[in-house]
Design a protein around this nucleic acid. Sequence first.
DNA 1: CTGTTAGCGCTTTCAG
DNA 2: CTGAAAGCGCTAACAG
Lengths: 328, 328
Amino acid sequence: MNIKEVAKRAKVSTATVSRTINDSEKVKPGTAARVRKAIEELNFYPNTHARTLVSGRSRMLGLIISDITNPFFPELVKSFEDQAVERGQEVIIGNTDYNPKRMAGCIRRMVERKVDGVAIMTSEADPALVTELTRRNIPTVFMDTGKTGPHSANIRIDYAQGIHEALQHLFVLNHRRIAFIAGPMNLESARMRRDAYLSGLKSRGLSESMVEKGDHRIEGGAMAMRSLLKLPQRPTAVITSNDLTAIGALGAILHAGLRVPEDISLIGFDDISFAHLTQPPLTTVILSRTQLAVTAFAALEALIRKDGPHADYSIPTHLVMRGSTRAI
Amino acid sequence: MNIKEVAKRAKVSTATVSRTINDSEKVKPGTAARVRKAIEELNFYPNTHARTLVSGRSRMLGLIISDITNPFFPELVKSFEDQAVERGQEVIIGNTDYNPKRMAGCIRRMVERKVDGVAIMTSEADPALVTELTRRNIPTVFMDTGKTGPHSANIRIDYAQGIHEALQHLFVLNHRRIAFIAGPMNLESARMRRDAYLSGLKSRGLSESMVEKGDHRIEGGAMAMRSLLKLPQRPTAVITSNDLTAIGALGAILHAGLRVPEDISLIGFDDISFAHLTQPPLTTVILSRTQLAVTAFAALEALIRKDGPHADYSIPTHLVMRGSTRAI
DNA sequence: CTGTTAGCGCTTTCAG
DNA sequence: CTGAAAGCGCTAACAG
């Protein structure tokens, strides 16, 4: 089943069939109708690989993420794919598993499949690996890291905004002893959150900072919280570097016979899907995956269409209030 | 950058380059080495679309799921992709959003991209839509639904096994008043779970069944649990049709001033990732997504390689004991 | 408006 | 063992 058979049935040339498929203006409506009828009757679907071969455009995009089972990503993947499909593009996904070797493999696959562009949505993108992309002038969008160039753009995430909103919220609620459970300090994004906490404290004249180290996982959050509870003057509120940390902290607080938010207010970061399933529902900072996906897709499209110099893309983060904070 | 330039640099014909790439036996080691060196130096990646065009095999598989943001799927997607990539295959994903129109769109995309096979991992696959696949003899694997044919296989999920294990576990713990919160009765899989509960009760000589209707969501679970608590003789244990239902039920129990598992034992179904984060961690029935992915992939490969008649694939479900059950 | 035709980059006979 | 050449299905000049 190919364009030739359609042409035969519609009694036109293959060129006319091709033009009809591609909505070229230069086909007489009557002819186009005949062609469309033949397509319908033969149940013809054009072969995308042949189209790619001749046009040079694959209508496929690459999306590289750390790990689809990390609750941060599914929503991002979904919005990105939805937009792509809407525009007739396919998406191929690469899981790096936080592993540079796998990242290299992902990039290779993208190149082999001749993707029209790739969005690298992991914060640990190694510049060396990415040269494979830039060398071939494949449009690339980065998150957090990566420099803007003729074929690449960068999306900055404004972690500080959300932390400042969280701090302000607690401040209004009369909290003054506010602690922070940080993430792994080798992560740029974790450092940015901690720094935002520190600077926010200072700008409000709160000299006394309490930073405990976590690991962005539940166990680390619980352990850090236990340390915080042992302090002679324990905090009245705690902000954590991510939601898993907050869930761990929540468990530790409950286990110590205290309650949230009655005894301690707690704020997470990320708004993973479970955040509103905790008891009480977690007040947290949301980084909209949808917005991130939309921005990444738009940036990629602009790069592909060579829309001139690109704006500096930036994604805000915002506090979402639920049940784990209360005034004192 | 193409095979021709490689041929020129290696001073061989394009046919020899092709043979080398495809690990044909018929290339003298020395020649192959020269070709490989040229490939390396030129940083050549073969164009998969050209390969597909001539060979008819795209080395792409389709994976159709309901919704990647449903916590059931990410793990499934990941294992499926991992296996595919390991074998040099790419995966394209289709989200149906439980919507037949979108399902049709997904199938169309799969056909256009000439996938070598597709795994339909949604339980609501409409046979009418799937004809597009069978008509083209595209190997297809179904879950729960769908008939086995020369180009298709079916994977049966043994929901009853897990329910029976849950019942047995409670029975050993001396529970006799065991209730069940069901899911939407238009879902085949929900009916199977409820029926397994009923038959398990009967086979143990427990005449008194308590079935309350839920909706597979938190709110429905909470509401059903409230009804159960109003019963003159409330149950000592509750099995739910899925984990979200259990989470809702847990909230209702706590809200009524009772405790889990001290006052009521609770068992979920699915083992979503949040299940072990609840307080207490939820005892539940696990349906291994990894196992499902592995089976689906193997079934698809068998179909593609035409490995003769296929075994009847079946996936078990098993109880995983955590903290929400206790003896009375 | 429509048809003819030359490739896109690769694989695969068929000769040598 | 290696090369020449015929396509795979489609698009894009170039003619008409």
